[in-house]
Nucleic acid binder design. Structure first.
Lengths: 336, 336
DNA sequence: GTGAAAGCGCTAACAG
DNA sequence: CTGTTAGCGCTTTCAC
């Protein structure tokens, strides 16, 4: 193995075709002028030899590497991988490759990674995290390449993409209301998280100010405990519970089942994140709000390319719509 | 924003230092001979100007890009992200960056990504998947760069890294036995998976041939159903259950609780994968076998670099040890 | 129509 | 000790 047959260079193609490298280059790139015959001969030969131009050599000339960096502190991949998939989807056709840099909240490590990417002449960097209200531990303010922030805190004047959590929450609550649920409750994570606040705000807006909102942690365990509160002797006994994430929702559903309260017969439950691994394993499967991170990634990819091509992009926050994915935990029929 | 101050080139440094580019290059790389004074002057200036050499230009000369590709079909990141973290950890110091390519079991897409990476002159590619007995849908046999396979099926004569599932399973079963459990059972995924077979084989070896092995799916739901079988009227009523993965284990534990059977008081349960998101949320938290994918990644990183430096590496399968991570689902004290 | 030559940013011989 | 020169693989004027 590893019998690496040397890579064919343009000179090889040119020599074998009996033309100069200049002509060969033009022939293959469809530029310059020459007889159709010459062009086709070169093309055919290049094909036969399996010639592939050295992207680095091209990059040196064009000053574009067709390479972008994805910087993230989300070691779990919960956010970064769907995003990555979207980015790839948007850029693969243009031959763009992505450097993934996981920086585990280590500023020095981050700096080193960013430098390495810059040295490798990335055309831009996309920054992502696991919280919308916390910045990565790196100062990117004086990068010499464009930056797009996706699902992380960013400077005011940056190009930033986030999910529209309020809209997503509204979809969920509306659904609950449409199903005839009238005593709603919201169980979510710590109040200090912007995501929790946004989702809770939207909930209050539609469910009314007196509908209970319970802040806690982003865990199943908290979901359990919240149910104990909600269904205590003189608790509110809600018939619809919107949860701040899927793990909480799973805890809630498990706790309800343990109390003999039927989901979705007696209580409808909706989660947030649509994390397949938990939403799918919940019994019954969980209806949840999907943040469309993949689409966010696609958009991030398009934006970073546009920027790297020098196109002017309006800075500021762009909110991308969420989508309710209906399973069986809320009752009623599937809509999509 | 995006007021990109032009990057400083070596020529700039040289000009300002009043020396030739050659001297500047040598000064900064610690090569050649010159007065300490000259060298330091250049170094200082480079520092002040924030000069960073263009890695592409270097790569063109040295024929080494300090870039590797990670090819995966694991869209979830369950395997690829820990691996990635390990690879990065091993290679970041040498300034190596990693192209991540998620190919969703699409051969054509895979081919395009591989070509793009090759065009960008990666020094090697690491291949990974989500099953040890299934190859990625690409033929990499005639790549012109070294390949290392990690946690995926590979050709006989390739350099391949896998977790030692049998050893991991043995650790788990031994633990159960040490805890005094004598009626063991194994609940695992589909028999056709090599991983299931290996783990089951090790189980049988230690637990005895008549200890029940239940093949099914890799899901929580199957864990539930398996408990129904095991604890049926005249079922084996085991006191120790080793599960083929964490999701099954979680299903098993939930089912046991629902039957009023105490974990770990009455039955000890151990999972496999140590997937924090499920092992940590299980009640009680799940003892599980960790495949040390990060270490696998580190090793893959080291190997690919060695290969790309032309070092001879013995081809063949390398099994990396697993490690039991003790939580509370099996009883007894924590060991580590 | 085609090719010679310059050059992207850097390193490595080889002179001086 | 330092600078000149030749290239890495490619694209692109600009002569011929």
């Amino acid at each position: 193995m590893a019998v690496s047959t040397e890579r064919i260079r343009l000179t090889d193609v040119a020599r074998l075709a009996g033309v100069s490298v200049a002509t060969a280059s033009k022939a293959l790139n469809g530029t310059g002028r020459m007889t159709l015959e010459t062009r086709q001969k070169v093309k055919r030969l290049a094909d036969e030899l399996g010639f592939r131009p050295n992207a680095m050599a091209r990059a040196m000339i064009s000053q574009r590497s067709f390479t972008v960096g994805l910087l993230t502190n989300d070691t779990y991949g919960r956010f970064s991988l769907p995003l990555m998939a979207g980015i790839t989807e948007a850029l693969a056709d243009e031959g763009v490759s992505v450097f993934l840099c996981g920086i585990e909240d280590d500023a020095e490590m981050a700096r080193r990674h960013v430098d390495a990417m810059l040295d490798k002449q990335v055309d831009g960097v996309i920054c992502t995290g696991k919280r919308i209200d916390k910045a990565l531990p790196v100062d990117l303010s004086d990068l010499s390449v464009p930056i797009v922030y996706a699902y992380t805190k960013a400077p005011e004047d940056a190009v930033t993409l986030v999910s529209d959590d309020a809209q997503g929450a509204r979809e969920a609550v509306r659904r609950l209301i449409e199903l005839g649920r009238s005593k709603l409750a919201h169980v979510t994570g710590p109040e200090k998280f912007a995501a929790a606040q946004e989702r809770a705000g939207a909930f209050a807006e539609l469910a009314g100010d007196d509908a209970p909102i319970l802040y806690g942690e982003w865990s199943e365990d908290w979901g359990h405990r919240a149910v104990a509160e909600l269904f205590a002797e003189n608790g509110p006994q809600p018939d619809g519970i919107f949860c701040g994430n899927d793990q909480i929702a799973r805890g809630v559903i498990d706790a309800l089942r343990e109390r003999g309260i039927g989901v979705p017969e007696t209580v409808s439950v909706i989660g947030f994140d649509n994390w397949e691994i938990v939403a799918g394993a919940t019994r019954p499967p969980l209806t949840s709000v999907d943040m469309n991170l993949r689409e966010l990634g696609r958009e991030a990819g398009r934006l970073i390319m546009a920027l790297s091509e020098g196109k002017a992009i309006e800075p500021g926050l762009r909110r991308m719509p969420c989508q309710l994915v209906v399973r069986s935990s809320c009752g009623g029929g599937r809509t999509n």
